[in-house]
Design a protein around this nucleic acid. Structure first.
Lengths: 158, 158
DNA sequence: CCAAACGTTCAGTATTGACTGAATCTTCAG
DNA sequence: CTGAAGATTCAGTCAATACTGAACGTTTGG
């Protein structure tokens, strides 16, 4: 991996680190997006990132749960290979939609806590819910349009 | 503030705490969305949240910079009043668009780092950029549609 | 001009949580 | 069955950072 690649890996580490996951998970993900060959063992990743095997193990566990990384085993080989499968970023954007769902639920409980307070006081949260509900609805719709366009242009499902 | 309100405040604290800002900023924001009256002084907020005045000061500074909170002074009153102005959540969603811009820039640098590697290796980042560019374009468009609809329905700009 | 009320700053503290590395478990070859 | 190589787990360490609280600066009323 060249210096630019290392910078990319570190940038992805910061990015995912500030988006809920750990920096190391971000670095692993970044590396799996640019590595050659595209499939790497945990040991190879640890060596390339100068990180402990334990950290890699925990990171790929996170990434697997979020479907950002795929784990494959070849028969007659006790090693496990990790890679970034196609469609990862569609998953990523879908997760962003989940954030809005979480926010909407919080806001709804907030509105309930106001009980029968007069409308001017409720207006703040009601306006918030309007926006959040709208975005929550639009994100999946936008992604579906994207996937449909892509399928039409390339003939591929992903 | 009742127990449900306190739960809402705490939930907003966790939410904003895991979205780049600090938990205290989230609590302050949450409180300003449900408090009565809607305008509160720093001292009142500190007392209600059982937090130090220093923490409130730092939090409102953050929230002001992000345009989540407005600061107003009344003449003949040395106190400053804080409140959550209308349109805050549209701002919030716009900020989400900025995240995608940041991600796009990172991915573009990553693609550059691959130099003249063969297309199969570049495909991973190229697919990622397709999705991210699409979402980055769609978020502002979606919000503009929302603002336009709202203006048409209510006759208000916000 | 003085005093009081309010907000800000910043050094110190406590807490969180990510990473390390050794021990353990698992899987395959011989 | 035994040994070796890989992956996982987890207790411990370390660094980042959010919050506290006292000291300071600022503004207004007397």
């Amino acid at each position: 991996m060249n210096d630019e690649g290392a910078a990319f890996v570190e940038a992805m580490g910061q990015f995912l680190g500030s988006s809920g996951m750990t920096p190391m998970a971000g670095r692993v993900w970044g590396y799996l997006l640019i590595c050659d060959p595209p499939e790497q063992t945990a040991g190879e990743i640890a060596a390339e990132l100068h990180a402990s095997r334990g950290a890699i193990s925990g990171s790929v566990r996170l990434l697997e749960a979020a479907m950002f990384v795929r784990r494959t085993r070849k028969r007659g080989d006790r090693r496990e290979y990790f890679s970034a499968p196609p469609g990862t970023f569609t998953t990523f954007a879908m997760n962003a939609g989940a954030i809005y769902r979480r926010l909407r639920v919080i806001l709804e409980h907030g509105l309930e806590s106001l009980g029968d307070k007069p409308p001017p006081l409720r207006a703040r949260l009601e306006e918030a819910l309007d926006v959040v509900r709208h975005v929550e609805r639009e994100i999946p719709a936008t992604l579906e349009r994207f996937v449909a366009d892509r399928a039409a242009n390339t003939g591929n499902a992903l």
